[in-house]
């Protein structure tokens, strides 16, 4: 609408001549901000009268009641107020903080202390791997090639704990293998398990079964290390044997001396 028409409408209204349709138009123009209320003189006059109009004063009771309430509220706000603590705008950050801490706690717990179930799984897996190694070792020990059998014996060094099956196989190898290197390797492999009294006594018994001086000396040295006095009898048998080389006898004599 043109400004001219707007001015015309305004002056018509101010003269009290505007019809209802024109008043509707004026309303639209007011909403659009094209006519200001201050342009409508008659209304401005009335509005000013309203603005000037003074409301009565409140009584002194209002002041008394207000300051009484303020005093009560001050007393309340000093103590802990549950409703204030849980009031959402203040409570929300507290809740968020608590939730984040809880999640961090859970994550930390999960990362630093693996759950028993995963522990169990790992243990099971370890057990399976150990079993496989044992099986591999036992089957390798039966191979004809001495190298393969050596490999089998050395496999046990990677095992932290072994079953009786393995130690028996190692003792068997120590006593019966045709290859001296394999026997020596088997003896080496048995060393970690000498705490077991059964293995110790088997080792003592093994002394009499050895013909190779190298193995005899190695066993004698081990007996000294273990201070296994029960082995003296077996060792003396080697000394009594005529076929035993002199150097070996000398070595064994020394071993017996250190033990007795």
């Amino acid at each position: 609408m043109e400004q001219e028409r707007i001015n015309e409408l305004v002056s018509k209204y101010n003269e009290g001549q505007a019809d209802p349709a024109e008043i509707k138009q004026i309303e639209l123009l007011i909403e659009e901000g094209r006519i200001e209320l201050s342009q409508l003189r008659e209304l401005v006059q009335l509005d000013e009268q309203v603005m000037r109009f003074e409301a009565p004063e409140p009584s002194g009771d209002l002041d008394d009641n207000f300051y009484q309430m303020l005093k009560t509220m001050k007393g309340k706000s000093k103590g802990f107020s549950g409703s204030r603590f849980f009031a959402w705008p203040e409570f929300a950050p507290k809740l968020a903080f608590a939730s984040v801490m809880l999640i961090i706690g859970f994550l930390g717990g999960y990362l630093f202390f693996p759950s028993p179930s995963s522990n169990k799984e790992v243990a099971e897996l370890k057990g399976e791997v150990l079993e496989m190694k044992e099986m591999m070792m036992l089957s390798l020990l039966e191979k004809e090639s001495a190298t393969e059998r050596l490999k089998a014996v050395s496999l046990t060094s990677e095992m932290t704990s072994v079953s009786d099956k393995v130690t028996n196989a190692l003792l068997q190898t120590l006593n019966n293998d045709e290859n001296i290197n394999v026997r020596l390797e088997a003896l080496e492999a048995l060393k970690p398990f000498v705490r077991d009294s059964r293995i110790r006594s088997e080792l003592v018994r093994s002394i009499g079964k050895q013909e190779s001086p190298l193995v005899q000396v190695a066993l004698a040295e081990l007996m000294v290390q273990l201070q296994e006095k029960s082995s003296v009898k077996e060792l003396k048998k080697i000394l009594e044997n005529e076929n035993t080389p002199r150097d070996v006898k000398k070595q064994i004599e020394e071993s017996i001396k250190t033990m007795t």
Partner: peptide, 17 residues
């Protein structure tokens, strides 16, 4: 809106008049 308020004031003053 501000415009809507002005219209409300206008109508109210009209009626008051």
């Amino acid at each position: 809106s501000e415009g809507a308020v002005k219209v409300k004031v206008f109508r109210a003053l009209q009626e008051l008049k």
